[in-house]
């Protein structure tokens, strides 16, 4: 049970002067239950890539298998695929349209062919799981704050009960508190529901804290694919393509270059602190031992 991409190529405006190859020979396997971050700067192909996962865009060449089935095969139901691979776009304003929040969230389930009661039931569950207070269910989605709109948008996709949840820059335009709330929510969803979550972002620091695997996109190709530690080893190369590793990664590398024995794999503040305390108190005791001798 997984998404497998084989040699996916995608070319915009083929055979015109404006031809752009947005994806180049992308091979990827998204295993069930993983929490993955896809990182790349604007124009790296990350948005194009995720729209292939649910069949919104069709590859110029290559094959995609969802749970072992070729999604480009004749007779394959792309609409079913879209309810199994849920995609939440960057701006919630692009999908909110109903008069009440509850109705809006029920739009997806209704399209799946569920009855009105079932759809509302699903919507209620989804809104509950994103932490929307019940007294807001009958309000207009347009009156909400940025963070709340985003929650409703996520609920709108969750209500279809997808197996994979993809979020395209879910924190763009939010303030730090709003950002942390959304990311914590997504992490909890992954933990509690066990669904596969793919987070698209250009912030390394956000992603490093949450995900198990990072896929770095550059110029339409997969540049790195591995655990955050593996990927941040290449912090110098990341810099050359306009991406930055978390601040602490730089700090630890600099300290190591200056002769302090620290763990350069640290990507979060907590890890850095642990490693530094060990290194410093280690230095401390080593010196003492020396004096004793």
């Amino acid at each position: 049970m997984s998404i497998v991409l084989e040699k996916i190529n995608f070319i915009y405006s083929e055979e015109t002067a404006y031809q752009i190859q947005a994806l180049k020979d992308v091979n990827l396997t998204i295993e069930d239950g993983q929490f993955i971050g896809i990182i790349g700067h604007t124009g790296s192909g990350k948005s194009t890539l995720i729209q292939h996962f649910n069949g919104l865009m069709k590859a110029t060449s290559g094959t995609i298998y969802f749970n072992g089935q070729n999604i480009y095969e004749e007779g394959y139901h792309l609409r079913d695929l879209r309810s199994k691979v849920g995609l939440v776009f960057q701006y919630p304003e692009h999908q909110l349209f109903e008069t009440t929040i509850l109705e809006d969230v029920a739009f997806g389930p209704k399209n799946q062919g569920l009855s009105k009661e079932e759809a509302l039931q699903r919507a209620t569950e989804a809104l509950k799981s994103v932490g929307m207070p019940e007294e807001l269910y009958n309000q207009s989605p347009f009156d909400l704050s940025g963070g709340q709109k985003r929650r409703v948008a996520i609920a709108g996709v969750l209500a279809m009960q997808p197996e994979v949840l993809i979020l395209d820059e879910p924190t763009a335009g939010l303030d730090p508190a709003g950002r942390d709330e959304i990311l914590d929510l997504v992490a909890r969803m992954h933990r509690e529901r066990g669904i596969t979550v793919i987070l698209v972002s250009h912030s390394m620091e956000d992603v490093a804290k949450y995900v198990q695997r990072i896929i770095v996109m550059n110029q339409g190709s997969v540049m790195y694919d591995g655990t955050p530690k593996d990927v941040f080893h290449h912090y110098k190369e990341l810099e050359t393509v306009g991406l930055a590793a978390p601040q602490v990664t730089y700090l630890m590398h600099e300290l190591k270059e200056r002769g302090l024995l620290v763990d350069t794999d640290a990507t979060t503040v907590a890890e850095a602190r642990a490693s530094l305390m060990e290194a410093l108190t280690g230095v401390h005791s080593a010196r003492k031992d020396f004096h004793v001798c």
Partner: peptide
Amino acid sequence: EETDKIMKAQMARGAD
């Protein structure tokens, strides 16, 4: 461009 994005966002929710 925005129309295109909205269409995709709704299609991702099963709109036809």
